[in-house]
């Protein structure tokens, strides 16, 4: 693995929203890498900047937001500098995205075949018939029964889980190097969620594509991701191998997140909570953004901490007072 160019290397990414009320620093200096075939979980609460990070990668941040700084190195090419034509030729072909709400990601007035065939033909000059075969094969791949019939249906004739499968099939059409999945199972039933997770894991293994899985649900990434980045208020506060981070969290925020997942082991005990709520991005606390909610906060937290050097350990944290004693 050493020396190989990673599929994606994000360095110091900053995406700000220039609103009338001020500048919202939604993504504020995020760095991480995704190697070939690797699944990286991007975890955080609502408003932590995880979705904006995902949209920044494919150049689809809604105005008034824009990427103001940093590098997005996709197989060595800096996408932060790429023009719109280049981005469009990469979107859907080399980098695909799946969204949170399967009810909303398919255009309600267009048939599935229209929506899949246009995705094929956006990047390849092939006949409609060939494109249809590709679309059909993609539906088979994600486990949709009688694909020929389903291609002629409209989105409202599908269940939520089936729609998400269609979205995944659409993302797979060009066998991309990287898929960005923005909470794709959040809106689904638990049983369907399990099926989709299983399907995605299988597809990653089979095709060797990389995956960024954005979620607020630690239990989802626990079984799926190789590595995990925990985001808080636009910054990555902790990252490392999934086992390292979940078994011995260093940042009090990660610890709090793990504590708020209900578990059979702690039956009967009150569920741990993180007090307070995520700060407004327009008005972040001084120093570490988490300190007003942090049980371990002290005077030193008023100075912004740097993330620990990766040289020391793959398990990095951005905290002056991490949970070292437990690890």
């Amino acid at each position: 693995m050493e020396g190989e160019i990673p599929t994606l290397a994000v360095e110091g990414l900053k995406t700000f929203f220039f609103t009338k009320l001020g500048v919202a620093q939604a993504v504020n200096g995020v760095s991480f890498t995704v190697r070939k075939g690797e699944v990286v979980g991007l975890v955080g609460e609502s408003g932590s900047g995880k979705s904006v990070t995902g949209f920044s990668l494919i150049g689809l941040v809604d105005p008034p937001g824009r990427v103001v700084e940093g590098k997005i190195l996709f197989r060595g090419e800096d996408l932060a500098q790429a023009d719109e034509d280049r981005m469009r030729s990469l979107r859907g072909r080399r980098i695909a995205m799946i969204f949170q709400d399967p009810m909303m990601t398919l255009n309600p007035v267009l048939r599935i075949d229209t929506q899949m065939i246009e995705a094929v033909r956006a990047h390849e000059k092939i006949s409609e018939g060939d494109a249809r075969i590709r679309a059909r094969d993609a539906l088979v791949q994600v486990g949709i029964p009688s694909p020929d019939e389903r291609l002629k249906a409209y989105p409202h004739q599908f269940s939520g889980g089936m729609r998400q499968r269609v979205a995944i099939a659409t993302a797979l059409l060009h066998k991309p190097d990287l898929i960005i999945a923005d909470e794709p199972t959040t809106a689904l039933d638990v049983t369907i969620q399990g099926q989709i997770l299983h399907e995605v894991q299988k597809l990653c293994r089979e095709t060797g594509m990389s995956l960024i899985w954005i979620t607020h649900d630690l239990s989802v990434v626990a079984g799926l991701a190789d590595r995990i980045c925990v985001m808080y208020a636009g910054k990555i506060v902790e990252k490392g191998k999934i086992s390292d981070v979940l078994d011995s969290p260093l940042h009090p925020y990660t610890n709090g997140l793990i504590g708020s997942v209900p578990s059979h082991n702690r039956r009967g005990q009150p569920l741990a909570q993180i007090p307070g709520m995520t700060p407004s991005l327009l008005n972040l606390p001084q120093g570490c953004a988490f300190h007003p909610r942090c049980p371990r906060a002290g005077a030193s937290c008023l100075v912004e901490p740097d993330i620990t050097e990766p040289a020391k350990s793959d398990h990095q944290v951005r905290c002056v007072n991490p949970h070292l004693e437990t690890s």
Binding site: R91, F99, T105, N107, H123
Partner: peptide, 23 residues
């Protein structure tokens, strides 16, 4: 979201507007 998804598929802006939005 379906407009964003259409863009994420890499289809041209013209098609996004004239097919997905217009319809």
């Amino acid at each position: 979201d379906y407009i964003k998804f259409a863009r994420a598929k890499g289809i041209s802006e013209k098609r996004v507007i004239l097919v997905h939005v217009l319809k």
